[in-house]
Structures are given as structure tokens and as C-alpha cells.
Design a protein around this nucleic acid. Structure first.
Lengths: 335, 335
DNA sequence: AACTCAAACAGAAACGTTTCGGTTTCTTGT
DNA sequence: ACAAGAAACCGAAACGTTTCTGTTTGAGTT
């Protein structure tokens, strides 16, 4: 149906190799160049990237495996990456594994069959086993948001420990002593790091940790609602809460509204991600903000330099977070 | 590097055709089946979908062109579709055109070169010109959210006119007469439909339309903020506002908070999409909710039945919206 | 005009599948 | 045990590129 290089060769009287050379930046005599371009116009020829991919063993396609596309942190990063990758001719195949390890494994196998040139992964599986079959093909893998030790790949993330420490310190400076934290699932890297930051802040302040103030959600909105309700119920003395991702922040705000609690009069809140949501809350939420654009750009760039063969060593890039000050933290008098 | 069918043939002593038959559901003698499966294990063989695609002229890949991945309506639909498509072996290539018609056109050309089996598009270009080159290949196109007349393809959307009419009627029933509306860009299908619903409600109530109550945003958060500020400034009498997508709803809430306006005491609000955000607002927002899951499922299903050759005619599927009642609409006394 | 040499070209093989037409093997009924 | 028919198998060609190995062309030199 569609025109092929053979058609162009026939039309122009040139050889296949010449046409191929034309498409790959080789030199072609002026008059032949014109003939080829005319033929392309008339036949509506478009390169068949599938055939090219078979021959060159490179599909110009990147696989992206994430826990949940429907998570603004993920979608913001993907938007940014896709933009850069497509401008360089790379397609992006998205695989949403619904936070399921098994589905994540299958997604990687799927991408292996599709012969993608590289994989970008925000991993559910902390062991890295899911990725090993792909790594054996010798192609690049870049992790986002979560580090896996002893895995032969790059990694781009933020300084979670410091981010959490600063947030808790801000609350401590404002006189809070009973500070709840809503973290993600215990086996996730970011949960562990952010929790360590929380503990560190308490430790530095010389205050004892209270197990009941630590609550594990599942990084979803509903999980945030549940976690907040649980924290409030278990800790009548709690004066502040720190929520460690956007979805749970929204969930916590829902829980707070539905329990009739007032921010910051009854409870101070520091959230995570999504500056717009923070602005939309009344009063404005104080939040920790991750530089998603920079992360996206960095990931795309690293991937491209691997594919261009310009980079062979693996790097770990750590970005700093921002603190956006709102009005959701109350200054407590001396107690 | 990677094992091929030829390797398996050599290993098992069978012919290429037999191996191929095995992978395509053909009958193979028990003892040979076992030999093949052993060889697959040992060689870590994975089908090369690129080679298969070249031969079968089907890549098992669907292109998705959207205005903005970073828009929950889009990302929710994509999540749902991708799930179903991947379970049937189809990959999904996402192209975010950043609400730019030119980028949308280039995205379609890109997908043609990638030889995708079908395209799902939430179109920026209302003329359909961007899609015609792909349609000429004889492959299926499905539009979401926005209809284009005289284009040879299917379409899945909601009854926007009715949705808007009901929202405005609810406000009218509660005594509101000066109702602002924040719509999207004028040349977008949904804007026109939703605006028509608004006008229809006014007409049925026998009330005159006021141009100043109609404000066009750009379906972004910032656009929502600006539109709300403009409406408030131009219409001191305005007692209610209807916002016609999620991002602008969030923007409107931001604007309302920052102007110190109280919902619903000073201004009643009906928003759009995203039930969670509606719950997170205080008081809860009344919103129009689109059935994104159903839309996603329907789109995927239609695409699959085209690709299976089970469907040749084109259909337009229209879903109904829901009204989720919150506390953001105030009942006005007789005026 | 003849020679040199690089640039431009051509043909064929190869990438890893599927599929067509033809051959072998197995099953079954007698 | 044998024929017949079906089921399973095989080899080769083809899909549309790229690339390797030569061959032709043409400009520049004498």
C-alpha cells in the first residue's frame, strides 16, 4: 500500500543505496536530490521505521514504567520527558503498572519484546529483579524517584531526607512537638528516606519519637484520608501533620474537612508537591515542592547521551526540593 | 545478541515454520512442544515484535495524541485505555502536543512513520486535516471528547450540552440570576457545546443573556484564575459561577480564595470533573462529573474491535454526566 | 586527451519474522 | 499390515530497510 524506497528508486532510476544514503544524511548529486524529493512528494513516502528498526536493531522507542500515570508527579515528569525525547525522534511507550510488582515485571518483559532502546522506571520492586532481564540486553535504564543499590543504571531523584527534615524542623521551630507524619508504603525507597528525615529532626531536637505519630498510607487519595483519620484518632495531642506526597496531601485535606478540623487553628499541615493545589486550599498550604521539570529534563538528557554513546558511566543525580510557605502552619505559644 | 527463532530451530532440530507455528497458536506435537519450551528457557528467547511487525504490517502499537497529559481528564482516560490495550498486547505511544495544532500535526506524521495500527485523538484541530494523512492508510481513528463532522472515524464523548444545561438549571432553581460561566477556548468543540447548554438554560427560564457573564479561559489553572478575576471585576452582581473543566475549576477556587470571597456565602460555584478535588474543598464543591472510566473502556473496546476486523462502521458514543452535589451552591431568598 | 582519485552510485545480502506450497509423519479403519 | 487422509512439519521467499563490496562518474591535473 504505502510507498517504499524501492518505489522511489524505480521512479528516479537510482539505486536503493542512494535513496537510503539520501535519508541518512549522505551526499547525493544535486539533480538526483531533486528527483528524489519530487518522488517523495508524489508518492507521499514516509520512512518505515519498523523496517529500519529491524535492520539497525534500534527502534527509537523508550519504555516508561511507572506505578500510576494518574499521579501528578508521574504525569508531570512524563510530559517533560516525552517532549524532549520526541523532538529527537524517540517515541515513548507508557506502561502503568498500577503499583503492582507483578504487572511491573510483565511490563518490562513486554518492553523487551517491543525492543525498546531504553527504559525509564519509577520502580515498585526495590530489589531491581524486574529490570535485570532488560539490563542483560546491554541497554540503558534510568530510575526516577527511587534508588536501587547494586543495579547497573543511572538514577535521578531528590534529597528526600533533607526535604523531610526541613519540613519537620519548620514545625518544631513553630513550637510543635506532637507532629504526625503520613508516609507511603514501608517498602518504598522514598518512604524510608522521608521517614529518616523526620526521625533525624526529632533526634536533633532531642525529642523522643512516638510510634503512634507515624502512619503509613499508600500514596493514594483514599489512603491519605484514612491515614489522617487514624492519626487524629490515635493522637489527641497532635498539633501538626506532615504529608509526604500530593495524593495523600489531598486526602488529608479531605479528611480534615470532613472531620470539621480547622487549618491551622486546630491542626497545622505541611503537604507535598503540586503548588496549585496548595494555592487552592484555604488557607494556602505550606508544601515541599519537587523540581519535576528539572528531573524530567535531566532524565531525558541522560537517556539521550547514553543512546548517542556519549555516556557510558552511571550517575546518580540528586536535586534539592523547595519549601513553599503558605498559611497552614500555626505558631504555637510556649507550652 | 538476543536469541532468534533460528537459534531455537537449530537447538530443537525443528524447522522455522514449526517454531513460528508454536508461537502463533498452531498445533505442535507434544514432544516438540517440550523441546521448544526448553530451548526458550535456555536461550531466554523473546519474540522480536519489530521483525514480526515488518512481516505482518501491524505493529501492535496505538498512538495517542492529546493536548496535555498533565490534565487529569486526559491522564485518567489514558490510564484506563492503556490498561486494556496492553492486556491485549498493544503498546501505547503517547504524544502530548501541548495544545499546539502544529505539534499535533507533527505528532500524527510521527506516528505514521512509526506505523502505529491506530490513533486515538483528543483533537486540537477542529477541521480534522491533521488526521487525514493517517486515515488514508486505512487504519482506525477514534476521537475522544471532541467531535469532528465529516471525518471517517469513531467518536466517544459526553453530552456536554445537557451537562451544562443541568448545572445552570440547578443554579437557577436556587434563585440565582446572574450566573457567570468560564469556558475554554472558543474554537474548541466542548466550549461551544457547554456554552450552548448555558444559553439554553437561560432561554428556557426566559431570562436575557449577558455577554459580560461569559468568560473564556484556556482550560489551564492559570487561565481559571484569570477568568475568575475578570468575571468578578466585570460583574459585581454575579452570585454564581459555573466552571467547565477541572483545571479551571481549581484556578477559580484559587482566585476566589485569594480575593477573600467566601463560597457559597458570597459566590456559589459549580465545577467540573475530579471528585476528589471537590471533596478537598471546604465547603465541598458541587460538580459535573464525567465518566472517565467508561469513556476509556469504550474507546479501547472500539479500537480493538476495529483491529480485530469485527467492526467496520463508525459510531458516535455519547455518555451522560453526573452531578455530584456538594455545599457550594447557596439557596437565595426571593429577590 | 589521457590519467588519477575521490565522490557518488549500484547490487546483493542481511535483519527476524510469517506464510506459501509441498513433503513427511501419524492415526485410523479395514 | 496397509492405504488413505489428516496433521504436522519443512524450506524458501518476502516484508522494507541498511550496509558491505565493488563499480561508475566526473573533476582536476598534466
Amino acid at each position: 500500500m504505502a510507498a517504499t524506497m524501492k518505489d522511489i528508486a524505480r521512479r528516479t532510476g537510482l539505486g536503493l543505496a542512494t535513496i537510503s544514503s539520501y535519508f541518512n544524511g549522505g551526499n547525493v548529486r544535486e539533480k538526483n536530490r531533486i528527483k528524489i524529493e519530487e518522488a517523495i512528494q508524489e508518492l507521499h513516502y514516509e520512512v518505515n521505521e519498523v523496517a529500519r528498526g529491524l535492520k539497525t536493531n534500534a527502534t527509537k522507542t523508550i519504555g516508561v514504567v511507572i506505578p500510576e500515570l494518574n499521579n501528578t508527579f508521574c504525569s508531570e515528569i512524563i510530559t517533560g520527558m516525552e517532549d524532549i525525547l520526541r523532538s529527537r525522534g524517540y517515541a515513548t511507550i507508557i506502561c502503568d503498572c498500577r503499583t503492582d510488582r507483578q504487572l511491573e515485571k510483565e511490563a518490562v518483559e513486554f518492553l523487551i519484546r517491543k525492543r525498546v532502546d531504553g527504559i525509564i522506571n519509577m520502580p515498585m520492586d526495590a530489589s531491581g529483579e524486574n529490570l535485570r532481564p532488560f539490563l542483560k540486553t546491554g541497554r540503558p535504564v534510568i530510575l526516577i524517584d527511587r534508588h536501587i543499590s547494586n543495579l547497573d543504571c543511572d538514577c535521578v531523584l531528590v534529597d528526600n531526607k533533607k526535604a523531610a527534615r526541613h519540613a519537620v524542623e519548620l514545625l518544631l521551630e513553630n513550637g510543635h512537638r506532637e507532629i504526625g507524619i503520613i508516609v507511603g508504603p514501608k517498602d518504598i525507597y522514598t518512604t524510608q528516606e522521608r521517614l529518616q528525615g523526620y526521625c533525624k529532626a526529632y533526634e536533633k531536637a532531642g525529642l523522643p519519637l512516638k510510634e503512634s505519630l507515624i502512619c503509613s498510607g499508600d500514596y493514594t487519595i483514599q489512603g491519605g484520608v484514612r491515614a489522617l483519620e487514624e492519626l487524629v484518632q490515635r493522637n489527641p495531642e497532635m498539633t501538626a501533620v506532615f504529608v509526604t506526597n500530593y495524593e495523600m496531601t489531598m486526602g488529608a485535606v479531605i479528611g480534615i474537612n470532613e472531620l470539621g478540623i480547622r487549618i491551622p487553628d486546630d491542626l497545622s499541615v505541611i503537604g507535598f508537591d503540586n503548588r496549585s493545589f496548595a494555592r487552592a486550599c484555604s488557607p494556602r498550604l505550606t508544601i515541599v515542592s519537587q523540581p519535576t521539570h528539572e528531573i524530567a529534563r535531566e532524565v531525558a538528557q541522560i537517556m539521550l547521551s547514553h543512546l548517542d554513546g556519549k555516556q557510558t558511566e552511571h550517575i546518580v543525580e540528586k536535586f534539592e526540593t523547595d519549601m513553599i510557605i503558605g498559611k497552614s502552619v500555626r505558631k504555637l505559644g510556649n507550652q
